[in-house]
Simulated scan of single mutants.
Amino acid sequence: MYFKKIALFVLIASFFNCKQKTTEAEKTSMTNESAKIENAVNITPIEHATFVMTYKDAVIYVDPVGGAEAFKGQPKPNLILVTDIHGDHLNVETLKALDAPVVAPQAAVDQMPESANINSMVLNNGGTTNMNIGGSTITLEAIPMYNLREEALKFHPKGRGNGYVVTLGEDRIYISGDTEDIPEMRNLKDIDMAFVCMNLPYTMTVDSAASAVLDFKPKKVYPYHYRGTGGLSDVSKFKTSVNNGNSKINVVQLDWYPNN
């Protein structure tokens, strides 16, 4: 009887010891998960082509327009990316108000008067640069963006504007800018997040965008810049087309047109 009591005591003690270890493991798992979320690349759409990317203390504004008031409540940028010269991508008054370093193609920098005193750096198609922003080292690659259809060549000639691949932490993020389904897009590799435009007559159709995405296979794709002369493109059709072709691609639909 004595030995049975001893065995029972050992069994109960072992149970509580294992339970304590499990609880500690659960706590560690939760802490690690929180760290992953905290250190993720976070996206805030502003409108149309304009959005905010944050990673740790790095804050990047993409094609900011609408004045400083469009970014109320957003952290101050420590880098701005501009893709092209058109008014939905480049607004000098907004750049002046935000007062942060700007990376842009030569054609866009040429639109910034010296009197605006904008701290700008030229990066043209094919260019790559490393920079430290907010304590994080990032890599920028300037990717071509241009039209293919004969009737649309006047909108975005090859060599003028930039798409970008931005490496933040372990994520490679593609920003299409104004483009069609060009070979340079279809041949992209190892893209974790992709922002892909689709609006006629200026860029490409929903079908063309979906076809390109199925070629370069990003882990996540965000349809953006989808307001054309005929209204908003059918991003639900885009999602269906992509997922019918590859169910592993996560199509993320955000609210890019809060005033519509």
Rank of each mutant, 00 (worst) to 15 (best):
T22L: 15
Y55D: 00
V122P: 06
G67D: 00
P101R: 07
P201W: 01
A97N: 01
I175R: 11
M112A: 02
N147C: 06
G231L: 02
T128L: 06
A209D: 13
E38S: 12
T229H: 15
G67I: 01
D255K: 10
L168S: 04
K237N: 10
V65D: 00
G126W: 05
N246K: 08
L95C: 00
M131P: 08
L90W: 01
D215G: 10
G169N: 05
E24S: 13
T50S: 14
V52P: 03
A40S: 14
I80C: 04
I6A: 09
K36R: 15
F3I: 11
I37D: 09
V41K: 01
V122I: 13
Y222R: 05
P223H: 02
R172G: 07
A209R: 04
Y224N: 10
K21Y: 15
P201K: 07
K21R: 11
S233G: 11
V62N: 05
I60L: 00
A13P: 04
Q106W: 07
K27H: 11
S115T: 13
V109H: 09
K72W: 07
T240C: 02
Q74L: 08
P218W: 11
A107F: 04
N246A: 07
Q74G: 09
S241D: 14
P77K: 05
F16L: 11
I182M: 09
I118R: 06
K96Y: 04
D110G: 09
N162C: 03
I85A: 04
G66V: 03
I173C: 05
N260A: 15
G134P: 01
M121A: 13
A7G: 13
H225E: 07
G159I: 10
Y257M: 04
E26R: 12
